[in-house]
Amino acid sequence: MSAAKLAVRLERAQAHLDAVRSYHAKVDKLVTARTPSDPGMVSGIRRTPSVSADASADALLARYARSLDRLSAAERTVEAITKQLDAARAEEGRVPFTRDQIVGADAVKTSTGWRTVRKVNRTTVSVETGFSWTDRIPFDQVLSTYRQGD
């Protein structure tokens, strides 16, 4: 995906994260406001059992847990898109290797790893596969080169 499209996705994800943070802050305020003020409740001694109060407290804690899950998911999404955007910007700024730079290399690095060079063609590099055939890799997919003497 292009860096421009990723930037738009990141902007939307940031806006979503801000909204989720705001919602979580509201729920957090509700939870902290419901902290027991009766000293008997803190010690575990309840004056009178209340089914409706227990149900209300359970619902509030479940709401808090869901908002916390949504918050962490939104943060992970923003982090993942940021990494993708950084990689896309680095790829856009990368200058592809030329034939002269690859000639004499013993190995080339691609997105799949290091491969041993068999032959440098006009626009591709033939690399060993470990089988009876060779793969051709275009120069723009070469990330790095290795020479034995370097």
Rank of each mutant, 00 (worst) to 15 (best):
Y64N: 14
V31T: 10
R99N: 08
P49N: 02
S111E: 14
A55S: 15
A65C: 07
R66L: 11
A105Y: 04
E79Q: 06
A53D: 10
L68M: 08
T35C: 05
A65F: 00
T35D: 13
R70S: 09
G104E: 06
D38A: 01
S67R: 09
R76E: 01
I45F: 12
E79H: 08
M41N: 08
F97W: 02
A33K: 02
A57I: 11
S52G: 05
S50M: 02
V108K: 05
R47T: 04
L71M: 08
V78T: 04
L61V: 00
S56A: 13
R70Y: 09
V95N: 14
S52D: 14
R94F: 12
S52C: 04
R89H: 01
T32R: 10
A87L: 09
T48S: 01
A65G: 03
A80H: 14
Q84N: 03
S43Q: 09
A73V: 11
E91D: 07
I45Q: 05
I81W: 00
A62K: 08
L60F: 01
A88H: 10
R63M: 15
S37R: 13
P39S: 12
R76A: 05
T77S: 07
L60W: 00
A105C: 08
S111Y: 05
V103C: 09
R94C: 04
K83D: 02
T32A: 08
P39I: 14
T48A: 05
S111K: 14
R89M: 00
R34T: 09
D86L: 10
I81Y: 03
A57C: 08
S67C: 12
R34L: 11
T32Q: 11
R89Y: 00
A59F: 10
I81M: 07
V108Q: 09
D69L: 06
A53W: 07
R76C: 00
A74P: 01
A105E: 02
E79S: 04
G104S: 06
R66M: 13
A80D: 15
K109G: 01
S37V: 14
E75M: 03
A74N: 03
L68S: 10
L30F: 08
P36Q: 13
G40Q: 15
R63F: 14
G44W: 01
S43Y: 03
L68C: 05
D38W: 00
S72H: 14
G104K: 04
S72K: 15
A90E: 03
R99S: 04
S43G: 01
A88E: 10
Y64M: 14
D100L: 13
M41Q: 06
Y64A: 15
E75I: 03
V103T: 12
V95P: 11
A59M: 12
V78S: 04
D58V: 03
E79F: 01
P96M: 07
Q101W: 14
Q101H: 11
S111C: 04
K83Y: 08
L61Q: 08
A65Q: 10
V95W: 07
T77V: 04
P49G: 05
R99E: 10
T82P: 09
D106R: 13
E79W: 01
V108T: 01
P49A: 06
